[in-house]
């Protein structure tokens, strides 16, 4: 395959990734996972850690793929490897297992900024998950159905057993107000 075809294929995969397309995710896994696993295993990691790091790298790539200003100027393979390598180095440092001689068999591109951004997003994700965990049921399912699954108010009323869509809507706003308070309260503490 020539370079141009490769680039096109990568662009298609990124597009699929942005749309949460399972086939694209699977293709990227198949093409890159083994390389990452051997990298981690060769640098004092386990298979579970390799899975973990790879997943995180996939999330980084996913976030990038949704960013319209982002254009990949290297192969997906190189990018994934660079992110995993950076993430793994960080983890080793945290565990004080850092040895300077971490081998780099592949070409790497700088990804520090992306990882910083990703960590911020991750923190937000955790804050939201906490807040959602605290509001309890049926609030959680109600908000999930409306804001995440984008179901109609009438459908939600039927599903949850509200007598009409307006009642469900009022309830939904009440839940949202509570969620907002919980979410922003954490922000102030954090």
């Amino acid at each position: 395959m020539n370079i141009l075809e490769n680039l096109e294929k990568d662009q298609l995969l990124l597009k699929g990734l942005a749309g949460n397309d399972k086939a694209a995710v699977e293709a990227i896994y198949r093409e890159n996972y083994t390389m990452i696993q051997s990298f981690i295993l060769n640098n004092s990691g386990s298979v579970d850690e390799a899975r973990d790091i790879f997943q995180e790298a996939m999330v980084v790539l996913y976030e990038k793929s949704k960013d319209t200003t982002f254009s990949l100027n290297c192969k997906i393979k190189t990018y994934v490897y660079s992110v995993c390598r950076r993430l793994w180095l960080k983890r080793l440092q945290q565990l004080n297992k850092y040895n300077t001689q971490i081998e780099s068999i592949e070409e790497v591109v700088p990804v520090e900024e992306e990882i910083e951004e990703h960590e911020k997003r991750n923190a937000d994700f955790i804050l939201m998950e906490h807040a959602l965990g605290k509001i309890g049921e049926p609030c959680k399912s109600l908000l999930d159905a409306y804001y995440l699954q984008k179901k109609s108010m009438q459908g939600i009323a039927d599903e949850f057993g509200y007598t009409n869509a307006d009642n469900a809507k009022t309830q939904k706003y009440k839940c949202l107000i509570r969620l907002k308070k919980l979410f922003f309260a954490q922000y102030k503490n954090a």
Binding site: N20, Y29, F125
Partner: peptide, 29 residues
């Protein structure tokens, strides 16, 4: 933020599905 959370959550879900499929096939682990 809520929307981003939802998107990230469903993406993570996809990841886990793909992972468990590949684990069954023996590609992973």
């Amino acid at each position: 933020g809520l929307e981003k959370y939802g998107a990230a959550k469903s993406f993570k879900h996809t990841l886990l599905e793909v992972e468990s499929k590949l684990m069954d096939e023996g590609v992973i682990s």
